[in-house]
Structures are given as structure tokens and as C-alpha cells.
Amino acid sequence: MRAYLERLPHSSTASWTMLNRRLEEAIPFQWHHHPEFELTLTLNSEGQRFIGDHVGSYGHADLVLVGPNLPHTWASRRKIDAAEPHVALVLWFRKAWIEAMIAGSVELQPVKELIDRSLAGLAFSPETGRALTAEFQALFDRPPLQRLLGLFAILAHLAGDESARPLSRAVPRHIEGRSSRLDRVLTHLHRHYAEPTSMGELAEVAALSVSGLHRMFTRQTQASITEYVAGLRIGEACSRLSATTEPIGFIAEAVGYPSLANFNRQFKALRGMTPRAYRALFRKPV
């Protein structure tokens, strides 16, 4: 399942976008990406989050900053208080806008370092999420200028949070003048990751030698092509295991593993459990 490009609405009274998302039934698995940064605080909900090649559990007051074009989604398992909805308080802002706001302001350099680190996705501690819950909720009742000041107050707080940890291992780090080569390779991989990967074919896509392709890819994504493809395949397998009843053998072949034994080994190496155990996490008790 390739991530779809989400086009976010823009406000005539604000330079950035926000959403108070309240869902009675569940937070659905919707694998997507967009060019904006996304800061999401999730309340009254437990489940799994998928960010790049990261898959992990989340709970109440889960707070994550996602970089531009990094595929992501949340998928809930249950509400903590069954009488209340799942809540996601989401803030989006464009890279060019936040960089322009920061430029020339020494006071905002910690925020610049924060957004630079978030390209791989950053998860903050539940304590940080709980501490900022009132600030997030207050944003929705403020006029535009006060909202803007509130956004930067939240970002400044996060910039000082030493508990933040990166999530995805394989994230493009664009280098000026070279990103188009990498973009072509990534587009090809996302379209054909379930098929056998030919290094020669990828080198032609990038207009590089095979050795040049390896150097560029590893330098800009911090992963080898083999590792990146495995992340895509296992990420797709996770989405199918959590959302469908398809047989595990069928899923293995669909994501590019004709050998079920090899699929099981790769899955356990990346997720720390077997596909069967992972699927059991999403089964509702009878």
C-alpha cells in the first residue's frame, strides 16, 4: 500500500493549519504523506503508529513531530475511556514558512535544531505530552495571533526536551543539487518494492554507476537499498496483518517474499516478533 499524498486545507487568517480530530469508533489506518511538518498529540487512545519504517505502540498523550513527506499513520486498538472519543490534536506547518520565521532569530535556533531532527520523526515522552495537553487544547480557542505565539511556545518547549527520540531509520536527507536523483530512485522503489530489486536498473534510474548509487543512497537515507526495501516490505506487511484477515503466506508473497521462512526471519528481525504474534496484537478479545 503506497502512501497517498494528502493535500491540506489552508486558512486565509493563518500561516499554518490545525485540526481537532475526534473519532468515536477508531483511528483508521490511512498511510499518507504531505510536504508539511506535522505535530500530533493523541489522547484517550491506544494502538500502533507507523512512521517511515518505524512501527511502535502509542498510548494516551502520545506526541510526535513528523518531517515533510515522511509517510505515516496511526491505527487505534481501543479507547482508554470508552465514553469519550479518540482525539488527535494536529498542527501542520510548511518547511519554507517555519524556516523563514526562524531565519535571523538567534532565540529560535533551538527550534531550528528541533525541526532538523524531526525529518526522521521524533517521539516525545508521555510526560511531555501530558504537560503540553492544556497548551494544545487552548490553541483552538485563541485568535490567530495568539495561536501563532502558542505554536512557537510549544515548539520551544519541545526543543528543550532531551527525551525526544528519532523513529524512522530510512529517511531521505536531501543534498542540494542531488535530491532529484534520489527522488527518482525512491519513487521507483515505492512503486516496485514487492518485485526483485535490480541494482543495475536502479542505477539507470539515478543516472549513476552502481557504486555511485550505493554511496548516494546510503549517505542521504542512512540505510542501504536492501535495508530500505526491507522496511517498505515489512511496513506493508504490518498494515495488512493489522487490517485484514489475509493468510500470512499470502501477505508474505504479496510484499515480495516468496519464501515464508525468509519472511518470518525478516519480520522478526525488524519487529522483534513473528507475524502471527504481531497480528494477535490487533485481535479484539472475545
Rank of each mutant, 00 (worst) to 15 (best):
253 E>C: 05
268 K>A: 15
102 I>Y: 06
209 S>V: 03
281 L>S: 09
18 M>E: 14
247 P>Q: 01
248 I>P: 03
66 V>N: 02
112 K>E: 13
103 A>K: 15
165 R>H: 06
188 H>S: 11
19 L>G: 11
38 E>T: 15
202 L>E: 09
127 E>K: 03
33 H>Y: 12
185 V>W: 08
185 V>T: 04
266 Q>N: 13
198 S>T: 07
91 L>A: 05
72 H>I: 01
170 A>E: 01
148 L>V: 05
200 G>N: 08
166 P>M: 06
60 H>Y: 07
94 R>V: 01
230 A>S: 14
263 F>E: 12
53 D>R: 04
136 F>P: 09
179 S>F: 11
157 H>Y: 07
257 Y>N: 03
194 A>I: 08
173 R>Q: 12
124 F>C: 02
124 F>D: 13
229 V>R: 12
120 A>F: 02
195 E>Q: 13
209 S>A: 03
224 S>W: 01
188 H>K: 13
227 E>L: 02
184 R>M: 10
229 V>A: 13
84 E>Q: 15
95 K>G: 02
2 R>K: 14
220 Q>M: 07
196 P>W: 01
158 L>T: 08
94 R>M: 01
131 A>M: 06
240 R>S: 14
36 E>Q: 08
193 Y>G: 10
193 Y>K: 09
123 A>S: 11
224 S>R: 04
30 Q>Y: 09
181 R>S: 14
125 S>R: 08
99 E>K: 07
282 F>W: 14
49 R>E: 08
108 L>T: 00
26 A>W: 08
10 H>A: 12
183 D>S: 12
46 E>M: 10
194 A>H: 15
13 T>F: 05
210 V>Q: 13
232 L>T: 03
120 A>S: 15
143 P>S: 09
33 H>P: 01
51 I>N: 15
39 L>V: 11
244 T>W: 08
152 F>Q: 00
48 Q>Y: 00
109 Q>N: 10
236 E>V: 03
92 W>S: 02
185 V>Y: 08
4 Y>C: 00
258 P>H: 07
171 V>E: 07
92 W>A: 03
165 R>F: 01
193 Y>F: 15
225 I>D: 12
133 T>H: 07
212 G>I: 04
50 F>M: 10
233 R>A: 13
260 L>N: 10
15 S>I: 12
205 V>A: 10
51 I>L: 07
65 L>P: 01
225 I>S: 03
35 P>S: 02
73 T>N: 11
116 D>Q: 11
